[in-house]
Amino acid sequence: MVDKAQCCCSTEEATEEELLSRLDEVIAEYKGKPGALIPVLQMAQAIFGYLPESALKKVALGLDKSYSEVAGVVSFYAFFSTNPKGRQTIRVCLGTACYVRGGKQVLEALKSKLKIEVGEATPDRELSLEVARCFGACGLAPTMSIGEEVYKRVRPAKVGEIIEEYYKNNVSVKGAAV
């Protein structure tokens, strides 16, 4: 597990302004070239980790495209995301065994605990919420994972504890989300 303090990439620390000015450089490079939209969006996603509204609006303005057209392209391709990713991902298994044994309720409990939807991240960008197919631990359903760690026989009422435990062990500064 990468510790924040040791992280060598600077995205975590760069301010939104710095990131937006990097995006300006990308736009300047592609401006006026045909077919620029998709590559610029890919670069933007690389810069921000996702595609925030401010970046999309800048791309629209910079490439002289309508915002609705840019949004149309972003929502067409699955590899673009308008939600920030958490540093770690929670995956709730909704494979057959887990589904039958309460995976859905685990997911609901997580959604209400973290106050986010599937595909979103907590406001502190620590955890993203996703669903998964099968972890191969069907005998111990329902299951979920945070990063590499798999939790088995999860009870919906206990997900709060799992999250708190995670924050205690992994996040030195108490996360704002919980």
Binding site: S66, Y67, S68, E69, V70, A71, S75, F76, Y77, A78
Partner: peptide, 27 residues
């Protein structure tokens, strides 16, 4: 103007303003 475009893909596609939003939010 370019106010409305297909948003999303496949069965989910809707024709509308950015991210299937509203006309009042766009140009």
């Amino acid at each position: 103007v370019g106010g409305i475009f297909p948003q999303g893909r496949g069965f989910e596609t809707v024709i509308g303003p950015a991210f299937a939003g509203e006309l009042d939010d766009i140009v």
